[in-house]
Design a protein around this nucleic acid. Structure first.
Lengths: 254, 254
DNA sequence: GCTTGACCCTGCCGTAGCGTCAACGTTTCT
DNA sequence: AGAAACGTTGACGCTACGGCAGGGTCAAGC
């Protein structure tokens, strides 16, 4: 029996058989005078065994281990380990599917303009903001930044930040206040730094900032983060934000 | 902001960021005079978006597609497709885990000497055969061959073969008959081809063969399969099997 | 001025399990 | 005798990066 026939019988490709030879999973058979491999029943049997094991999800090195230890002892151990691994994978897939379903249901209700997934509270806030996201560049930017924070710092810091932010976002006047601040900042896009509206915008923004926010940290000298953040704004907008942070920091820690 | 800081903020490795640059997922930022990449808030935002998408399970080429089509239209489509894909994977894993559990429970009851998984009926038959598998080489070989058939020809032919084999295996005298045949064939291991016991063994074996088995096919001239199969036997054993097949074929198609 | 340590750069090899050529020899059918 | 269908070895391709080699840059401390 030559390689093609063996492959057909067991239901694998010839390439796979040669691969198993290469890895030492399946012993190389005798060669005919022309160099062709000549297989016997033993090979078919062993190959079928390899197949059964790989189809269970074992990796080829593990299959080799199982085949090598002629006592079947190790098999049980490997299978148990594999089951645990598969359980983890299954759970991971399940979780991802749950998040996918949330996203898809949001999308069906017309939310989700072009963004990826973010936490449900934020999603709700920006969902209600609605048309603002199509008209106010500031609102768009704000959503992007909050999405960044939501994605970035894993649990610990995220939770802390969200716990002080969320009450502010879900208050009864939060939407109107946010719209007002966005409009004021948008108006500063082309304004000079000494425009009188800068002060008003800063005051409006500071009023929105929850008192528990660590604004002091943000103002610390070596903070390149704040600079990077403000580099994306016009000079007047950046000045307004900076003043608002100072006002919030002074008002919050008297 | 340089690459290390960006990586820390978003929670990825610098290697991943460079990888995204290489694939065109994330635009290359300006370079400083020393060749360092200099990032802004925009990059952090985009990188976080990429992260959210990959963590959902999208592949990087798909992420690129979603980011490229500036309308979010395609996102829903991609996500739906991804969900279908994940559903398939989840089902596959679930099935494998079910088979694994069967195997492990078999192993706990002391079955499964060193073999991989096979269909439950076969497993039951050889489970009951018990000690025979430790004493009779023929029994071991038989199990191996049936396991091969069980693994190899997918559904169609397998079902056909099993449907005629299983009744014969589960009859009340099946175990005793099988033991008898195994013993007779084992006795022929070192016997000459013209040993009188060859005829008796052939008769005993033929009596076990279900009448519906396509023995004619097996005897057709060009069948290298049968030769390969018999090459694993001693001459007298092979002769007995050959004669049994002839007897079954003649008796089965009168 | 020199070293140390923490960054940054490019580029190449490795991963699992084969698929897919390439370039060539053998067998088999017509 | 030519073509189709097989066989041989060898090398590259795929994911989403990790790891390493071999170097350049920058701030601080001696």
């Amino acid at each position: 029996m030559r390689i093609g026939e063996l492959a057909r019988i067991v239901g694998v490709t010839t390439r796979a058989i040669r691969h198993y030879h290469h890895l030492g999973l399946l012993p190389e058979p005798e060669r005919l005078a022309n160099g062709y491999r000549e297989y016997g029943l033993r090979h078919a049997i062993e190959l079928a065994r390899i197949r059964r094991l790989t189809e269970l999800g074992l990796g080829l090195p593990e299959v080799r281990d199982v085949l090598a230890e002629d006592a079947g002892r190790d098999l049980v151990e490997v299978l148990a380990e594999l089951d645990a691994d598969l359980a983890r994978q299954e759970a991971a897939i399940h979780e991802r599917r749950a998040r996918l379903r949330d996203l898809l249901s949001d999308a069906e209700r017309g939310l989700l303009p072009a963004d990826g997934p973010l936490s449900p509270e934020l999603s709700a806030f920006f969902g209600e903001l609605g048309d603002e996201l199509r008209e106010s560049p500031m609102a768009v930017k704000d959503r992007e930044v909050l999405a960044l924070i939501d994605t970035a710092a894993p649990p610990e810091e995220r939770e802390k930040l969200m716990s002080v932010l969320l009450p502010a976002l879900s208050g009864p006047d939060a939407l109107a206040a946010a719209r007002d601040v966005y409009a004021r900042l948008d108006a500063l896009a082309d304004a000079p730094v000494d425009d009188p509206r800068v002060t008003e915008a800063a005051r409006a923004l500071a009023a929105c900032v929850p008192p528990d926010l660590p604004t002091g940290e943000a103002l610390a000298e070596g903070n390149t983060l704040l600079d990077t953040f403000l580099a994306d704004f016009s000079p007047a907008q950046a000045e307004a934000v900076r003043r608002a942070l100072r006002m919030a920091a002074e008002g919050g820690a008297p």
